[in-house]
Design a protein around this nucleic acid. Structure first.
Lengths: 153, 153
DNA sequence: CTCTATTAGTAACATGTGTTACTAACTGGC
DNA sequence: GCCAGTTAGTAACACATGTTACTAATAGAG
């Protein structure tokens, strides 16, 4: 190796590994999503709306890594399938979002598969390692999230 | 909660957290990539080619989560910028890929930033936690990768 | 040799995603 | 009340990405 040349092993690079692993997981789950005709943004919207009744689109954007445009698209698509209902609120710019019965049924089926998958992940990790892993995840989320907020100010 | 309704907290869902965290990291690094006019696929190609002299595009595809079309596009773009050179081989379908001097220089600068970022990640994790985290990553990669290969057979 | 099956790479199309800019609606100061 | 500034949501555009199908080249069976 000449002077100044960087040695670099992509396989040992953490951001790369995180992205690839996240992608592997998404692909696994893709079967569950796609089987119900759900995209990932749509699934995220359903997940947020299922927890809080009558949320607004902006709340979904605040609770997920989607911008308001992505939420808008997902909601429009979900409404077309009659899985979500929009109703007017006092603030006429805002629509309250709710699951329809059918939307709730779809969400329940996918959530069931998602929870099974989550269990598989936990089982794959030897007991004792799992806790450390999730703690480390939280630490990194906090470290990077903070850095990002600071940079935006 | 009515009968059969799933309780589901997106923030505690590991695939979601992995994807979001990977994305946060990519955004951090985006400054480094974009500062040099590099996209992520291009960066991956540079990283693979920097390690092995005269690899073929198919090898890049085999070593990364990119399909051959993604590699083709990244290589075409890198060649236009004169950061990669293609030379013919005995098999006339295949081109041997190599970094140009300028390509090597760009790669070295970005790799330097990437390694600094990697160090930041390690420093963010309390000593003792870091090893467990990377071991857990490897376990999950193996578990999911295998499942995926099986499914494809 | 030669004919079929496979492989490397790309073109063309469809789809998804990010970005900017806009409209309608609201808020708060005056 | 009224106007400047802000917010919710969407439209329109550019760009990136995935998918399918194709071409050229090679390998391998017979």
């Amino acid at each position: 190796m000449k002077e100044g040349e960087q040695k670099f092993d992509l396989d040992a690079f953490t951001p790369y590994r995180m992205v690839v692993l996240g992608r592997l997981m998404s692909e696994e789950l893709g079967a569950a999503y796609a089987g119900e005709g759900l995209s990932i943004p749509e699934w995220r919207v359903l997940a947020v709306v299922s927890q809080a009744p009558a949320v607004a689109a902006r709340d979904v954007a605040a609770r997920t890594p989607m911008d308001k445009m992505a939420v808008s698209r997902a909601v429009a698509s979900l409404e077309k399938k009659d899985w979500i209902r929009r109703s007017p609120t006092a603030d006429r710019r805002v629509n309250a979002l709710e699951l329809t019965d059918e939307g709730r049924a779809v969400f329940d089926r996918v959530a069931k598969l998602a929870l099974e998958f989550e269990k598989r992940i936990h089982n794959a990790l030897p007991s004792g390692k799992a806790n450390g892993f999730f703690e480390a995840l939280a630490i990194l989320e906090a470290a990077l999230g903070d850095a990002r907020v600071e940079a935006a100010e």
